[in-house]
């Protein structure tokens, strides 16, 4: 298979810097609070009605307020970079359902497995990361080049 690189749009420096901040936040969270910075787990645990204990809701809520508020804080210093969402409303709903259901079933997402799990050298997270990357590449190819729905 022939792969063409999008040379003029590469952002290795910014992506590396962003990644370092994500890793820093994950390190601080586990060192100071003993918690894994896995976004699907933090959100899923907050809205899980089967978990009746309330003590865990505070840290989850505080982390998510920081996360959701990060756009506003960023804008204090610079205009936000673009967030171009090409998917239709229907596609977004299907995708959201898959992401929500799948991350709960697979116990994590890009952050919990891809960053924290791999940093812990967890075999489960390695398998999960390979699974979602593989599926992501295949579904993207099918959607854009076979079904041509992009």
């Amino acid at each position: 298979m022939h792969i063409t690189i999008y040379w003029q749009n590469l952002t290795p420096g910014a992506s590396l810097l962003g990644g370092i901040l994500i890793g820093l936040a994950s390190a601080i969270l586990v060192i100071f609070r003993g918690k894994i910075a896995g976004i699907s787990g933090i959100l899923g645990g907050l809205i899980d009605l089967h978990n009746s204990a309330n003590s865990h809701r505070l840290w989850r809520g505080l982390f998510l307020i920081g996360l959701v508020g990060s756009s506003s804080v960023y804008q204090l210093f610079a205009p936000l970079p673009p967030s171009n969402i090409s998917a239709s409303f229907g596609t977004l709903i299907v995708a959201g359902l898959l992401v929500g259901f799948g991350t709960r079933m697979g116990s994590g997402c890009t952050s919990g497995h891809g960053i924290c799990g791999l940093s812990r050298l967890s075999l489960r997270s390695l398998i999960a990361t390979i699974s979602f990357m593989f599926s992501g590449f295949v579904v993207c190819f099918l959607f854009l080049h076979v079904l041509r729905m992009g």
Binding site: A95, L98, R104, S107
Partner: peptide
């Protein structure tokens, strides 16, 4: 469940371009 769940997640991620964290930020 780990493999199937992660593959469903990857499918949704590819369709929308969003995983949970960035979706909450956006």
């Amino acid at each position: 469940e780990l493999v199937i769940g992660s593959m469903l997640f990857g499918a949704g991620w590819a369709l929308a371009g969003f995983c949970p964290g960035p979706a909450l930020v956006a």
